[in-house]
């Protein structure tokens, strides 16, 4: 397997590795994949209460270099986006940017799933909070 320079860069210098407090009402957490499949991604976003814009994103990934690079890349892309703009990111965008070969397409699919899962978690929390304060 040869890797594109961008995959190697993200693998060697991953952006935004780490965790945000998952109980924070402004944080959404997505955990997708399965250990027996060889990749698990945890993607977290924090949404600014004032603007509704994602102001922080973190990841931790168990997976191949392309999976790590895909999640690292999306943390960069997510910062500064609204949720609608975040949902517009597709696996094709990720695969294109990283020049992933066909056998690595599932890494980009997983990263897209992680974005959707993190946003869904954030929205679930907001609705639960709204219901509690009502």
């Amino acid at each position: 397997m040869t890797y594109s320079p961008k995959v190697i860069d993200h693998f060697q210098n991953p952006r935004n590795v780490g965790s945000l407090p998952k109980d924070d009402p402004h944080v959404g957490t997505g955990l997708v994949g399965a250990p027996e499949c060889g990749d698990v991604m945890k993607l977290q976003i924090r949404v600014s209460p004032g603007t509704g814009v994602i102001d922080d994103a973190r990841f931790k990934t168990f997976g191949c270099g392309s999976a790590i690079a895909s999640s690292s890349l999306v943390t960069e892309w997510l910062k500064g986006r609204t949720l609608d703009q975040a949902l517009a990111i597709t696996n094709g965008d990720i695969a294109h940017e990283l020049q992933l070969p066909p056998v690595k397409m599932h890494c980009s699919v997983l990263a897209e799933d992680a974005i959707k899962a993190a946003i869904a978690d954030y929205q679930r929390k907001r609705e639960a909070n709204a219901a509690a304060t009502r």
Binding site: D39, F62, C64
Partner: peptide, 11 residues
């Protein structure tokens, strides 16, 4: 454990 083999090879 907790580390995927291909990423380890890459490292």
């Amino acid at each position: 454990a907790y580390v995927e083999g291909e990423s380890l090879l890459m490292g």
